[in-house]
């Protein structure tokens, strides 16, 4: 093949790649159809299961008591997670609170990565549905540290390809097409308020931290364990981006 032809071909290929995004991404009408699916989200089944699991521990009443809240103040409190808790002497996610609650009730806590915990976490967070996220990253030194650690975890390039969360989620790249999908703005997506969510590609309910793990795995970064200080800090950092937006659990994601 002549060099000129090769160049022409590769140019043609390049063009088709750069314009490819347009024709592959969904229209607003298509997105509206998917948004309608929220009405009958398959994850409603998992949330209902979470409700049963929490009921075994005494339900939302017992949870409120465990957190030193009344049933009226519980939703506002839930909308502020992850938060520093004196009881644990660290910044914790809601799932870790549920583990603590199970432990104190003399039960073997569900593992953070178990479907039972995902379901129970989704139901617990849904108690705060329609409440605006009120995470306070300046509440105390621990939260400030967690936010800083979260940002560091988000920005640090790691792994075989030297990628970070920021590589695909920096303001400058939002909207660019990667593998036929527009790169989302985590703040607009209300990531803090719409996870746990039903992942359509996985046909299952997934939590925000577990989604982070999926990202890391795909980008060849070593996966950070659920509930670890870095992972909780990452949740703090991303949740802060959605501060003020209403919680709507379960979400529905591609």
């Amino acid at each position: 093949m002549k060099i000129a032809t090769k160049i022409a071909l590769s140019l043609a290929l390049l063009c088709s790649l750069s314009f490819g995004g347009e024709q592959f991404s969904m229209s607003d009408a298509d997105r509206a159809m998917y948004a309608e699916m929220l009405e009958n989200n398959p994850a409603d089944l998992m949330v209902a299961n979470g409700e049963r699991l929490l009921a075994d521990l005494g339900g939302s009443e017992a949870l409120a008591k465990y957190l030193g809240m009344s049933e009226d103040t519980l939703p506002e409190y839930i909308a502020g997670f992850p938060r520093y808790m004196e009881k644990f002497k660290m910044v914790v996610g809601l799932d870790q609170v549920l583990q603590g609650m199970m432990h104190d009730a003399g039960k073997k806590p569900y593992k953070l990565k178990s479907p039972e915990m995902f379901d129970m976490l989704a139901f617990t967070k849904s108690l705060a549905n329609d409440v605006k996220i009120n995470i306070d990253v300046n509440a105390n030194k621990h939260m400030k540290d967690a936010y800083a650690l979260g940002q560091k975890t988000f920005d640090t390039k790691r792994g075989g390809r030297g990628l970070s969360c920021l590589s695909c989620h920096a303001p400058a790249v939002i909207g660019l097409i990667l593998r036929t999908q527009p790169l989302p703005d985590l703040a607009v997506q209300n990531s803090g308020g719409t996870w746990p969510a039903y992942r359509m590609t996985k046909s299952s309910l997934t939590t925000l931290q577990h989604r982070f793990q999926g990202c890391m795995d795909n980008a060849l970064l070593k996966v950070i364990p659920l509930g670890s200080p870095e992972m909780v800090a990452l949740e703090v950092y991303v949740t802060e981006k959605s501060k003020g937006q209403a919680i709507a659990i379960p979400g529905l994601k591609r």
């Binding site: 009408a29 298509d30 159809m33 309608e36 699916m37 036929t180 359509m200 590609t201």
Partner: peptide
Amino acid sequence: LKAPEIAENGAVVP
């Protein structure tokens, strides 16, 4: 008949 013109995920098409 209402269906998306483009489905980003063939596993779930409303």
